[in-house]
Write a protein that binds this DNA or RNA. Structure first.
Lengths: 203, 203
DNA sequence: GAAAAAATTAACCATTTGGTTAAAATTTAT
DNA sequence: ATAAATTTTAACCAAATGGTTAATTTTTTC
């Protein structure tokens, strides 16, 4: 195994990501991570010092994916309905690309709210919400939409986009969908959810 | 500790529930359950045989809460909009009453989809969805609502009701809400979410 | 090519964990 | 009141776990 051909550190990280997402911090085993990475367990410690350190690193990366580009769209000059369409599209695409992500992030937020709070502080949420609320108020005054708070609207958008990924096994089970059907349904939601939301707020 | 005054089995069960909801199966420790129940660890094994057995029992009970009364409302003769209002109200009330429930159930569904599939098979979902779709079709033909599938509508309702509980720490962090403000916001959603949905499908 | 640095290995370690056991204590049944 | 049944206890157990160590191997540097 030559360093030029393979980067052991990266292999461990990818493997750890997969297992942490699947099993969570408590359920993941260092030996399993080593086995699946095809290395000796001591190497995990050599490169990452401890289970917690490795987990923190993985979580940092995954958490970054969660909010990727969202701020940019929310603060853009796009017309409101178009903005909603773009947020929905981006959210659903990202969750499709990283299917275990919402469960992973939500769990860790439950387990460890203080760490998350610290991370969230780095996001200029007030600015975003203020700008978004202004846009909403403008559209409301023009008579284009009904009254709604930026907070509630964003919660609704995220709810409609993310929950079906969290509830994937339940939805598949209840509605008797195989993977293909489930994914087709998710694909359809890209336009349907946006339309649902726009219709809900439209005057 | 007299049997007449306290039921050790129940105390263990309540404690286990709390800890399993908080830590999950892998993260919960039998010694912690015993400590918090104020008993000797061997007692947990005496009454419940193993960690897995105890967990299964707790999960069974919690899973029951998740779907409680939902089938009854969906299959009732209520007019569609009223039905939506009742589902939303019931969902939000139940999640307020059992705040850790959605995380707990969603996690276990991820971890153990086969077990969940088995449980879901006991719910007469096809009947429910068929009936609900009929009602929707009737309203659509009358020109009262837009076209939507029962599946997507139910997913949207559940998304809007449940996700804010799953994402509680994130919402609180991003929107800088304390517990009181968060709960006030949730209370408001009982009517707002129903109105949002009704508006989204109304013609 | 030799030395230094880095990566890898296999064995080992202390602690934790879920579970077991047998004795003691308590409750119930007669 | 005694015997039987049940509950509880404290000690113990084997395996699993995250982590450590020192030797060996490989790669990099000069």
């Amino acid at each position: 195994m030559k360093r030029k051909d393979k980067n052991t550190e990266q292999v461990i990280l990818q493997t750890a990501r997969k297992i942490f997402i699947q099993k969570g911090l408590a359920g993941a085993r260092m030996q399993d991570i080593a086995d699946q990475a095809g290395i000796n367990k001591a190497l995990v410690h050599y490169y990452f010092t401890s289970k917690n350190k490795l987990f923190d690193l993985v979580f940092e990366q995954e958490f970054g994916h969660f909010f990727a580009n969202l701020a940019t769209i929310i603060s853009s000059d796009l017309p409101l309905f178009e903005k909603i369409e773009n947020i929905v599209s981006l959210d659903i695409e990202r969750m499709t690309q990283f299917p275990g992500l919402p469960n992973f992030v939500m769990n860790e937020m439950s387990r460890n709210p203080d760490v998350i709070l610290k991370k969230l502080k780095k996001i200029p949420v007030n600015e975003l919400l203020t700008g978004f609320q202004k846009q909403i108020n403008t559209e409301f005054r023009k008579g284009n939409i009904r009254k709604i708070s930026a907070n509630q609207l964003l919660i609704n958008i995220q709810s409609l986009c993310i929950f079906p990924f969290i509830a994937r096994p339940m939805i598949k089970g209840l509605m008797q969908l195989d993977d293909k059907s489930y994914l087709a349904m998710i694909e359809k939601r890209k336009t349907e959810v946006a339309a649902f939301i726009i219709q809900a707020i439209k005057n």
